[in-house]
Design a protein around this nucleic acid. Sequence first.
DNA 1: GGCGGACTTTGCGCTGGCGCAAACTGCCTG
DNA 2: CAGGCAGTTTGCGCCAGCGCAAAGTCCGCC
Lengths: 241, 241
Amino acid sequence: MTDNAPRKTLPRLDESLLTHMPPFSRLERRQIREILDQASSRRYDAGVAVFDEGAPAERFFMLLDGYIRVVRVTATGEQVIALHIPAGQLFGIARALGRDTYPATAVTAAESIALSWPMRLWDEFVRQYDGFATETYKTVGQRIGEMNTRIVEMATQQVEQRVANALLRLINQTGRKVPEGIEIDFPITRQDLSELTGTTLHTVSRLLSGWEKQGLVKSGRKRIVVCDAHRLVVISGAQLP
Amino acid sequence: MTDNAPRKTLPRLDESLLTHMPPFSRLERRQIREILDQASSRRYDAGVAVFDEGAPAERFFMLLDGYIRVVRVTATGEQVIALHIPAGQLFGIARALGRDTYPATAVTAAESIALSWPMRLWDEFVRQYDGFATETYKTVGQRIGEMNTRIVEMATQQVEQRVANALLRLINQTGRKVPEGIEIDFPITRQDLSELTGTTLHTVSRLLSGWEKQGLVKSGRKRIVVCDAHRLVVISGAQLP
DNA sequence: GGCGGACTTTGCGCTGGCGCAAACTGCCTG
DNA sequence: CAGGCAGTTTGCGCCAGCGCAAAGTCCGCC
């Protein structure tokens, strides 16, 4: 395990990085070594674009640490956040969707580290590595499900319910236990939440203030802790059986 | 080419049915024959469910004729139309998304004919038939793109713009030239349009009435003709370069 | 330590579009 | 051809949530 092979960007990557990531979990150590040897690793500051909507999809990525926000920008310049990606998932996998440009912009929501490979290796990975394709399409399926849910929510729910749902989804996917409750694990502003729910930062601010008075959440600058998820579920309008 | 093999449902299917459908277009006649021999063919009346959300995904389908509406139902019973599928596309391809249940309900928007295969053949098709996987994922990619656009629209646009966009999308995908303009090729009610755009049938009705007075559209019972797509584009808020 | 910018809060007035209700119209069925 | 139903139109009143505005708060940087 000594580091005698020169690496472009970082010391030789350790196999354990990938062994527990679903797309690679069924592979042998030797295969993971091959995969890592072809990867580039890079650190990104919070709030920078990893790639831009419409750009040629030259690489695909695996997020090792941090969070990615997938963003689309409208013709009039407004932003909409399509979804958040937690560590351990592939992203920028345009090829899996039969595209050769990225369909949206990927921005880091917090400081992040990602591996990437040239897109030409995609077909090879799919062919050679057992379970890679299957797991990838599971990810795609989940994201489709999530987008679908967003559409249904936007079409049928009130703003208050949508914001509650967005918070619940965030703590489910990216929540971290803290003494007061569950905290969203990356910096998130009122503006961000409004872009997730299709409303304005003013309305989000009012809702959060209200909930804070009732002890449902605690929030500070770029920081939100959900204290009483159960009551939030009630607000979100989920049906109880 | 004589019909001497007994078929369960219909006379022996002709190869020409599939030769021009993208997922199969790169295949040899012999392969298409194999595929057809494993298919069941069935006709559906308008408005019936081909499969239901959450049901085990036992078969996948190719729509030969007609239109499919992909629908989700909320806990409170409201319907939301996720997208429309025109003839020539695969649907019910849960397996391509790593799922074993259907993620939404498929309802025929008009009288339709579809082939179907047991889902266990999916992996075989992907493995054996060149281009099948690629074309399938292109379809998935397109649908993701469409859903994404819907989310962005719902988040940023006014009802009037959303309805205009929905109409434009419909005539693009499923439009048919008629003397007065372009008609949506299947029966569609105000209610349907409202479920597509996340509003109420009342509002849709008012908008269509208004547009009809201005000569933008002509509409009757379950029938909509767009006469002046260009002005509709302006209403939809698309940016002109 | 103080300045500036980023983020947040709050008030106020207005309006788009929803809810409700009632009437109308064309199509299908018996 | 007479209902009756499914789909559509239209009017009216109301309110959730947006736009605008202004002030307050926190953080990082010089």
